[in-house]
């Protein structure tokens, strides 16, 4: 009988571990530079049987701030951490890690990913072939913000062994660059320059890369 009580006690002691369950610890966003910032809300619930006190929420960049309305959460209680990431001059894919520390040495990691979309996005920005592999054609997709009035005007390859060709899928919106090696018998490196007409006063070009490795 005593032992049965003992089992029950130990089982409940095991359950007593304080823990936070995060609804979505990794969050992804798509934004444009004009948005200026993004705010992510990380909801959690104390799924343990002891209160949890959040001792510290740490961001590693001055561009990211975290807000917590209260610090101690009873068993079964839910809460939320609000994280704001201010873009500044940052563009493209950005990732911010936030560390949340509890009073019993627990640590949780939150992950904020944001693509600050530019007027022209290119994907992928790198293509490669293994040496002695099939020299099959590969494609790179270029997408332009329709309202910006961008046109992709040409593509140049720095290597004659990696020839690039531009086709228009939808004028002002979508273009395809195809890249094809003449052969894959030896290593090669090329830089492809994608030229646009935007902005009109200083047209911008973009670089993508090709390798035979």
């Amino acid at each position: 009988m005593h032992i049965r009580f003992c089992f029950a006690f130990l089982a409940s002691a095991g359950m007593a571990l304080a823990n936070l369950h995060w609804e979505s610890a990794v969050q992804e966003f798509e934004r444009v530079p004009e948005d200026g910032s993004v705010t992510a809300k990380y909801a959690f619930k104390n799924t343990g049987s002891e209160p949890v006190t959040i001792r510290r929420v740490q961001t590693s960049c001055g561009c990211t701030s975290a807000k917590l309305t209260k610090t101690t959460f009873a068993p079964g209680e839910s809460g939320e951490i609000e994280v704001k990431f201010t873009f500044g001059s940052r563009r493209g894919l950005q990732r911010k890690l936030i560390s949340v520390k509890g009073d019993k040495d627990q640590e949780w990691r939150l992950d904020l990913r944001c693509n600050i979309r530019e007027t022209v996005t290119i994907n992928p920005a790198f293509v490669f072939w293994r040496i002695h592999s099939d020299p099959a054609e590969q494609s790179i997709r270029i997408v332009c913000e329709p309202s910006a009035g961008v046109k992709v005007t040409g593509v140049k390859s720095s290597s004659p062994r990696l020839a690039a060709n531009l086709t228009t899928a939808k004028p002002g919106e979508e273009y395809i660059v195809t890249v094809k090696p003449t052969d894959t018998s030896q290593k090669e490196a090329a830089e492809l320059t994608i030229e646009t007409n935007f902005p009109p006063d200083a047209p911008r070009s973009y670089r993508v890369f090709a390798r035979i490795r």
């Binding site: 960049c61 990211t64 990732r95 890690l97």
Partner: peptide
């Protein structure tokens, strides 16, 4: 803390 590493890895 690794924000730069996280961004580089993601890109």
């Amino acid at each position: 803390e690794g924000d730069a590493a996280a961004t580089v890895a993601l890109r």
